[in-house]
Design a protein around this nucleic acid. Sequence first.
DNA 1: CGAATAGTATGATAATTATCATATTTTTCT
DNA 2: AGAAAAATATGATAATTATCATACTATTCG
Lengths: 225, 225
Amino acid sequence: MSKCEQCIVREFSALKALNKEELLRMADCKSSYTVKKGETIFDEGDLLNGIYCIKTGVCKLSKLSDNGKDQIVKLVKKGELLGQRSLISDETTNLSAVAVEDMQVCFIPKQEILKFFNENNQFSLNMMRSVCGDLKDADDGMVNLAQKTVKQRLAETLLKLENDFGVLPDGSLKLQLSREEIAGMIGTATESCIRLLSEFNKEGWITLQGKKISITNKKELQRMV
Amino acid sequence: MSKCEQCIVREFSALKALNKEELLRMADCKSSYTVKKGETIFDEGDLLNGIYCIKTGVCKLSKLSDNGKDQIVKLVKKGELLGQRSLISDETTNLSAVAVEDMQVCFIPKQEILKFFNENNQFSLNMMRSVCGDLKDADDGMVNLAQKTVKQRLAETLLKLENDFGVLPDGSLKLQLSREEIAGMIGTATESCIRLLSEFNKEGWITLQGKKISITNKKELQRMV
DNA sequence: CGAATAGTATGATAATTATCATATTTTTCT
DNA sequence: AGAAAAATATGATAATTATCATACTATTCG
């Protein structure tokens, strides 16, 4: 069982407020495992008995709509936590979490987290700040979905993917999502997403080769949004 | 200067965790004022130096999009707080707050709230729970905007307005919003909103008389969403 | 009171986006 | 490697929604 002290999740999440003693306690009760790409961490409606720390990899938080489409609300990457909202509200999750890359995660039981909340105020404040950040993103997301065109949202999403997850040596987006997943992020039909990608390609703003997408004219994409 | 002890905001917000001594301190430093319908409490980009308690009335939280339209993200009513997100994140607001009804609000300075965060853990937990509730609503809102038709969103919004704010003796929605505001809630053009309201009216699902809207066939509206 | 203004309503049309159909390419699995 | 399945691509068309124009109605204000 590895220690939590040097873990990347500590560096980037509310957990940075924990002291040595608390970290040891957490290391003691955590369980560590891997999640393969495409596997589910939790499903809409599940009651979570703790939170997940993402050591490596990326997952999507999504919600299935009545029309059968999966809307992706957020991508969560290494260093971040998963499941706080549900744990704090003491409700079942409204979102499911599915790996879009192989992941290593740690599970920390609910009781332990609740103890931290009660005894470590800075931890509470950090957590609150993180949830507030999510709320701001969600509000901005609502405005984008309501007021921008699909084309603008696609351009914005591509830029964000490059910015948040970087590029491979060949210049293509490191995080490779399926067309369906990209459509789920921007809130459109998969065919429409594919069509617009083709269009961007023809315009010379991006290059497509298989699943790989490279941004070749960032300026032009930025001008659209 | 009235006391905070019996205030409705205490009953419904994170403030319920405050003890007598804290309430007295808060009563001492708060400032209380009225906001007329249409007046702005704060604007996008403002740096808030505290939070607002809503004693009476309703306001809209909205964000101006590049296309010039105002997207309403949330309606906030009596008993709720305003400005927590910005205060906790220590950032300027991303939303503006404008009264849609005459309001009575109290302003509580930032330092005072920060003290509560530091000394009263239950207050922090309550606040966190409240922000988490907003986050869940925002996530659900994103899915609705992305995956539902304007017609479905209008039906849902009308039902929500009736449910959250009630009806007048004549059966019409108590909260009277302009067509433009309703359009801003569902994320569509004002004309489209007006057109659909007419359509609902012709179908016999609602009745329109001036600004007043009455739901006359709730079942049918529910069936749509 | 009556003009001015803002808000609501509706038609005509254009633009955007979804849906269905069908290739084509890529990936998976044995 | 080769068949089957999944993902991607593209055309044709329909549905939805936005935009522009204009008329009508209610409200405000001097």
